[in-house]
């Protein structure tokens, strides 16, 4: 059943509508567990569109296997998605800094509040993100270290290659996941791929993981995959490589590649002089979990992240 969570009149003729698709058994007792899957908080992140589509399609194909509630919100920032704008268009406000929102606030805060109220009370909420335009990422769960005993078993269901645990002090407290965890709805973020694109292979892994999570929660009564065992990474295991020069980055490695200290990650070249400005080298042993995708580089740009071995 498709419902409108919030509707706001736009300036001329149109309405901004944030919709969800509620999938649940025909007869419900009221005691069912509820999973929320949200996507599209940033208008340039499209991987979640495919994931939401595929989840809904597969549930509809095997509807009798569903024993709980799955609420899917594919596009929380519909105007951003339509206009290829990461933030809320016009205001340039980051929607994922506005939660839990406010009914008396401006449009962004108001819609955030309506979304938050609608999700409130769910057992689990998974927030699907892509990376931005600049960096591509291996599929990963990001969560903060509060309630780790509850969040980690959920994160392990999601069939990602990596779980990255941030100290709660470093998590921006206006994010949807943070705000939901504060009220007892277990929530985490999945990041994968890059902005403006759909990587079907990565997305299918997450779809499989979400079905495993549904089974884990007791709301999906069917066969599912055994999820990949992810590496669990803390901030201290994550090594950043930032450029020390500017120009065009030409990568020499790709995601998932294992590197050792001193291995060449890529080069930064000055186009007009035809010279190499910098040979970017690995500063740790480990796996490339993020790599620069957008070639224009300025001093300080993030080139890559290397994840150490961590705990399996």
């Amino acid at each position: 059943m498709i419902e409108t969570v919030v509707s706001v009149d736009l300036m001329i003729e149109e309405k901004l509508k944030i919709k969800k698709n509620r999938l649940c058994p025909d007869m419900i007792s009221g005691d069912e567990k509820r999973l929320c899957i949200v996507s599209g908080l940033y208008g340039d992140e499209l991987q979640g569109q495919y994931i939401c589509y595929e989840i809904i399609k597969r549930i509809k194909e095997d509807f009798d296997k569903l024993t709980g509630i799955v609420d899917i919100y594919p596009s929380l920032n519909p105007l951003g998605l339509d206009s290829r704008t990461r933030d809320i268009p016009d205001s340039e406000i980051d929607m994922n800094q506005l939660f839990p929102g406010s009914k008396t606030g401006a449009v962004g805060e108001y819609t955030a509040s309506c979304i938050f109220d609608d999700i409130k009370g769910a057992d689990v909420c998974i927030d699907l993100h892509s990376s931005n335009l600049f960096i591509k990422e291996v599929p990963q769960v990001r969560l903060n270290d509060c309630n780790l005993d509850k969040l980690l078993p959920i994160a392990k269901c999601l069939n990602t290659d990596m779980i990255w645990i941030h100290p709660s002090t470093s998590v921006l407290n206006g994010s949807l996941a943070y705000a939901l965890n504060q009220i007892g709805t277990y929530s985490m973020v999945i990041e994968l791929g890059t902005a403006f694109r759909i990587n079907k292979k990565y997305c299918d892994k997450i779809v499989d993981g979400l079905f495993y999570l549904m089974k884990f929660m007791g709301i999906w009564n069917s066969e599912s995959i055994n999820p990949h065992v992810p590496s669990i990474t803390n901030d201290k295991d994550m090594v950043y490589i930032n450029s020390e020069s500017s120009g065009i980055f030409i990568p020499n490695v790709d995601l998932y590649e294992k590197v050792k200290i001193g291995d060449e990650i890529g080069t930064i070249v000055d186009v007009i002089t035809g010279s190499v400005e910098e040979i970017v080298k690995a500063n740790a042993d480990g796996m490339i979990c993020s790599i620069r995708d957008y070639p224009v580089i300025e001093e300080g740009s993030l080139i890559a992240r290397i994840v150490g071995d961590g705990d399996e």
Binding site: E92, N242, V296, E298, G300
Partner: peptide
């Protein structure tokens, strides 16, 4: 442009910053 020209980050959302980080963080 309103935010940082190269990556749309916001200097006044980058404090305390990191001298080894991205441009706005630096």
């Amino acid at each position: 442009k309103v935010k940082w020209i190269a990556d749309d980050s916001d200097i006044n959302r980058s404090f305390p910053g990191n001298p080894k980080g991205t441009a706005t963080s630096r």
